[in-house]
């Protein structure tokens, strides 16, 4: 691991208002390369909104977001995703009427058959690329033990399998950084443990992540460092062991 901190994502003083309500009120933090940064805090702290802002789905009212050495503030979500920062959603966001395999294939960037004329040129033009993608998708499915489900409609999967599908799909988009919004929500404990292990493996292979999570025991095992939010602000940043003893963090959880 790098000796000097190497930030991949830097969020500076980001604000977001909804009408009169300030959901995010000057949030600042950095996420390092090759780490899983935890984003924690009580309900309504603005974590999901901040994730939405970072991913480009919600426009910030003010502030600056730097990713991989470039300013990405206010870029639309697809441009941010194409730079390698890919998010998952708090509620399941599977493509319900596509098969599991199709869900993965969709995510692959820059497909030849995705333009109008590329599509019309037919399989001769895009077939070879498609076969390569199918190979990659099957490898991902195998790794996450989902190979038997590849022809299942995504809408028919269980809640936990849908979460897994979202992570697999995000991997197909060739990310450098994953933004995971409560990846364990609604997942049974066994599967949750498996997902946890997958995420740590991915980190060890060099993938960076920011993860919103409620379950602090998971955060403790997986995330380093953690960023604590309350009432739209970042109130603490550091290793979980340090952060959890700080008075302002305890206050936030007790009051929030």
């Amino acid at each position: 691991m790098a000796a000097t901190p190497d930030p991949l994502l830097t969020v500076s003083d980001v604000r977001r208002d909804f009408g009169g309500v300030r959901a995010v009120d000057g949030a600042t933090f950095t996420a390092l390369r090759g780490r899983i940064t935890g984003l924690i805090g009580p309900n309504g702290a603005g974590k999901s909104t901040l994730m939405g802002v970072v991913a480009g789905a919600i426009k910030p009212s003010a502030g600056r977001i730097e990713y991989d050495g470039a300013d990405v503030t206010g870029l639309p979500p697809h441009r941010i995703a194409r730079r390698g920062m890919v998010r998952t959603f708090q509620l399941s966001a599977e493509f319900a009427r596509l098969t599991v395999l199709e869900n993965l294939l969709v995510a692959a960037p820059a497909q030849r058959g995705e333009s109008l004329w590329g599509a019309e040129l037919g399989r001769l033009y895009w077939g070879a690329g498609e076969d390569v993608l199918v190979g990659q998708a099957r490898a991902v499915l195998d790794r996450f033990s989902m190979a038997p489900k590849e022809d299942e409609l995504a809408g028919n999967l269980s809640g936990g399998q849908k979460r897994l599908l979202e992570i697999m799909r995000a991997l197909m988009a060739r990310p450098k950084m994953l933004l995971l919004d409560e990846p364990f929500a609604g997942v049974n404990p066994t599967l949750a443990r498996e997902i946890e292990r997958y995420l740590m493996d991915l980190r060890d292979e060099g993938l960076s992540m920011v993860m919103v999570e409620h379950e602090l025991s998971v955060v403790e095992r997986v995330c380093d460092p953690v960023v604590v939010m309350a009432q739209g602000r970042v109130i603490a940043e550091g290793a979980m062991a340090d952060v959890r003893t700080r008075q302002e963090v305890l206050d936030a959880y007790l009051i929030g």
Binding site: A57, P77, H78, A81, T88, F89, E94, L98, A170, A173
Partner: peptide, 10 residues
């Protein structure tokens, strides 16, 4: 099926 998820995949 889900336009926000499609956008989030580029």
């Amino acid at each position: 099926d889900n336009d926000r998820a499609a956008a989030a995949l580029g």
